[in-house]
């Protein structure tokens, strides 16, 4: 087992010539085209792009929740066929089980294993220790027996992250997990997820439409362009591993942010929109 691990320097996730077409022949939409991407162990990669660029679709294909129409995905060297416990996913909302309390939600993956008789009592004990540790890591030690609908949106997402980490997935897939939170809560969640990333030595692929979020969290920012969804540019974020909020005001950070935003605008066809606006205001002025 160990020897094998030394030999495999292969990336954790490898996406090769991936394509996705939605729909049946006369009304087909090409959502993704020729995607090549590698995510290494203990790497934090963020996916950004204009809406309709297929970033969520790509993440869901990696998670096995959608299937690709061409190309392949390797997780730990093995082809992905459907969802699995090696690729846990955190959703934007509505993914917690409201009938289970916080602790039961976090332990859900262990309950699956216990159901199948895959766990010894020692395993169960260890799992309960891990669940406690995750609860503390998420800053929710007093919330163990609260139900999800008693928690704020930010707290609910912390539980969802803890639940996803519980089964020690090879990779954590996050689909706009903070998209529904207010700005202050998001900042707190950003530092929390970076802390988790370091402590758990996790590998994370994170989808967002917020460029600042993508840059603050990611080591690499992958920009996708729409119609058909494809990788446009991969940016390396010029920030040290240990990050703090002030870095968002640094010259390098702001410059890159401007560049990425500019590029998203170019790829999304929004430029033609502004041309159109200009044209409209000109005709309005001439009247």
């Amino acid at each position: 087992m160990d020897a094998q691990k030394v030999v495999t320097i292969a990336p954790r996730i490898r996406v090769r010539a991936l394509g996705k077409i939605f729909g049946d022949p006369p009304h087909q939409v090409e959502a993704l085209k020729d995607i090549d991407l590698e995510v290494c162990d203990n790497e934090f990669v963020t996916l950004v792009g204009a809406s309709g660029c297929g970033k969520s679709t790509l993440l869901r294909i990696i998670g096995g929740l959608e299937y690709q129409t061409s190309g392949e995905i390797l997780s730990g060297g093995k082809p992905v066929a459907g969802p699995g416990a090696d690729r846990a996913m955190v959703f934007q909302h509505y993914s917690l089980y409201p009938w289970l309390d916080v602790m039961e939600n976090i332990r859900f993956s262990r309950r699956l294993q216990a159901n199948r008789g895959e766990l010894t009592s020692a395993d169960v004990e260890m799992a309960s220790g891990r669940a406690e540790a995750l609860l503390n890591l998420m800053g929710l030690p007093t919330m163990a027996h609260a139900y999800p609908n008693q928690l704020s949106g930010g707290m609910q997402q912390r539980v969802a992250i803890a639940r996803a980490l519980m089964g020690r997935p090879e990779i954590l897939l996050m689909d706009e997990p903070f998209g529904a939170l207010d700005a202050q809560t998001r900042e707190v969640m950003h530092d929390l997820i970076l802390h988790v990333f370091k402590l758990e030595k996790a590998t994370i692929v994170f989808v967002t439409h917020d460029v600042e979020e993508a840059m603050y969290l990611g080591q690499r920012v992958v920009l996708l362009a729409p119609r058909p969804g494809r990788i446009d540019t991969i940016y390396k974020v010029p920030l040290p591993g240990q990050r703090h909020q002030d870095m968002k005001h640094s010259r390098e950070f702001l410059d890159l942010k401007k560049e990425i935003l500019q590029r998203i605008r170019e790829t999304s066809g929004m430029k033609t929109d502004s041309d159109l606006l200009e044209q409209l205001s000109r005709t309005a002025g001439s009247q």
């Binding site: 416990a85 934007q92 509505y94 089980y97 859900f108 159901n115 639940r163 897939l173």
Partner: peptide, 29 residues
């Protein structure tokens, strides 16, 4: 039953039977 509840279980490795028993039924109850 919200799709995210089902998909979360799938990415935790739940089988079809487990999703019916442990997600769909309790969620719809």
């Amino acid at each position: 039953v919200p799709a995210a509840q089902i998909e979360a279980a799938q990415t935790m490795g739940a089988t079809r039977m487990e999703i019916i028993q442990l997600v769909l039924l309790p969620s719809a109850k």
